[in-house]
């Protein structure tokens, strides 16, 4: 069995398991980048998404100026292709994390790359919360924070989980590009050690592992979204 494996996937075996260019390292890097940029980008996205919804003309505190600012920031960042953002944001990255390369450095462009996408998704998810329910909450004298947390967040929970799943999956896709600034990960494995070296077996296995990650996120996300939907 192991003999068959090393003959069919020689380059995969050559990469090793835990070394600098090993598979475990690549998996860890991908998970590390996905996790932390999901936290930072997710938070930013939530803030902007909620901001867009509450300050919109039909929101609970309509504010043209703030809405315009939220809207334009999100639009501009969404318009920048991620691979260019990686390079473009490098000086900022250096100021924040002290280096321009590596997995940690990739967190800055990853977070900034994913947040506008997530913000739009959050905006859509929250807009789907029935405005009548918000009005009913206002009619019983609910405060701003009670409406944000008790109505929008609670009523939109299932939909937020669904869009978070989509975002997380596209974030895994973005981490593959982070290899361009030496962040490592499965994407880098597939390109730098697979494609560039004509090691198709490495590309294949790296792709397969990314698929497994995506599948896990999808299954867990779907389960949670269903679990929290009582409509």
């Amino acid at each position: 069995m192991s003999n068959w494996f090393s003959q069919t996937f020689p380059n995969v075996v050559y990469q090793g398991w835990s070394g600098d260019t090993g598979w475990l390292t690549a998996i860890n890097q991908t998970i590390f980048m996905t996790f932390w940029s999901a936290i930072f980008g997710g938070l930013l996205g939530l803030i902007f998404g909620f901001g867009l919804v509450v300050t919109s003309p039909r929101g609970i505190t309509p504010n043209k100026v703030l809405f315009w600012i939220f809207d334009k920031i999100v639009s501009i960042f969404r318009a920048i292709p991620f691979i260019i953002l990686l390079a473009f944001i490098a000086p900022v990255t250096k100021t924040i994390v002290g280096t321009q390369i590596g997995s940690t450095a990739a967190l800055v462009p990853l977070s900034l790359g994913v947040f506008p996408f997530y913000a739009r998704q959050v905006q859509v998810a929250l807009t789907e919360v029935d405005s009548g329910i918000v009005e009913a909450a206002q009619a019983v004298g609910a405060s701003f924070t009670e409406i944000v947390f008790g109505v929008y967040l609670r009523e939109g929970r299932s939909e937020l989980i669904r869009v978070s799943t989509v975002t997380l999956i596209s974030l895994i896709g973005l981490t593959a590009m982070a290899g361009a600034i030496g962040a490592g990960g499965l994407g880098n494995m597939a390109i730098a050690y697979g494609y560039n070296r004509f090691a198709n077996d490495t590309t294949l296995v790296a792709t397969f592992l990314v698929l497994v990650l995506v599948l896990i996120v999808q299954v867990v996300g779907d389960y949670l979204a269903k679990r929290y939907n009582h409509k």
Binding site: R154, E155, R157
Partner: peptide, 27 residues
Amino acid sequence: RRRKIGMIFQHFNLLNERTVAENVAFA
């Protein structure tokens, strides 16, 4: 003052993610 003015709606506007008791308790 709004708490002293109850309101009901055509489409009920209940909180879907809360139980009946929680809906009442929300107010």
